[in-house]
Simulated assay, not measured.
Amino acid sequence: MGEYYNYIKALHLIFVVTWFAGLFYIPRLFIYHIEATDKPSPDKEILSDQLKLMTKRLWYIITWPSA
């Protein structure tokens, strides 16, 4: 177990950093989403779809697995 301690510690550090990065970035995406609702019609749909995709990927691919 002693020889794996540094690897486990490094993985734990990576997971904590990615989890906090996701937690700090997701409110920013929500703010962008609210700001996108004030845009005119073609930009609004394009930005809304893109931000939904970014939020989904951030939460389900980065933040949730690292927690």
Score class of each variant (00 low, 15 high):
Y7I: 05
I34N: 02
N6P: 02
K44P: 06
I26R: 00
I62Q: 11
A21V: 08
I26Y: 03
P27M: 12
P65D: 08
Y25W: 13
I61L: 13
D49P: 01
N6I: 07
S48C: 01
L47G: 02
I26V: 06
W19E: 14
L47S: 02
E45D: 05
Y5V: 03
T55G: 03
T18D: 01
I61C: 08
A21G: 11
K52G: 14
K44R: 15
H12A: 05
A36R: 06
N6R: 05
F24M: 15
K9R: 04
P27N: 12
I14W: 15
K9Q: 08
W19P: 06
N6E: 08
G2E: 07
W64C: 08
G22W: 02
L11A: 14
E3Q: 04
Y32S: 13
P42D: 00
H33N: 07
L58M: 00
E35Q: 09
D49M: 05
Y7F: 11
V17C: 01
T63L: 11
L13C: 09
I62T: 12
S66T: 05
L47C: 06
A10H: 11
Y60H: 12
I31G: 09
H33K: 04
L11P: 13
I46K: 12
L51N: 08
N6Q: 11
T18C: 02
G22E: 01
Q50E: 15
I46H: 11
K9N: 09
E45G: 04
S48A: 08
L23S: 08
I61M: 10
P40W: 00
R28A: 15
Y5C: 02
S41F: 12
I26K: 01
I34V: 10
A10P: 10
F30E: 08
W19Y: 15
V17W: 05
Y4F: 12
E35S: 02
S48T: 09
P40T: 01
I34H: 06
G2I: 08
W59N: 07
T55N: 03
H33P: 00
R57D: 12
L53T: 14
D49C: 02
I31M: 12
E35V: 02
M1R: 07
I61N: 13
F24L: 14
L11D: 11
Y32F: 14
K44W: 09
W19F: 09
Y25P: 01
G22C: 01
M54P: 00
M54Y: 00
A10Y: 11
G22Y: 00
I31S: 08
L58F: 00
P42F: 11
Y32E: 03
E45A: 05
A67V: 10
I31F: 08
F24D: 14
L23E: 13
I62M: 15
P27W: 10
R28Y: 14
T55W: 03
D38V: 01
T18G: 01
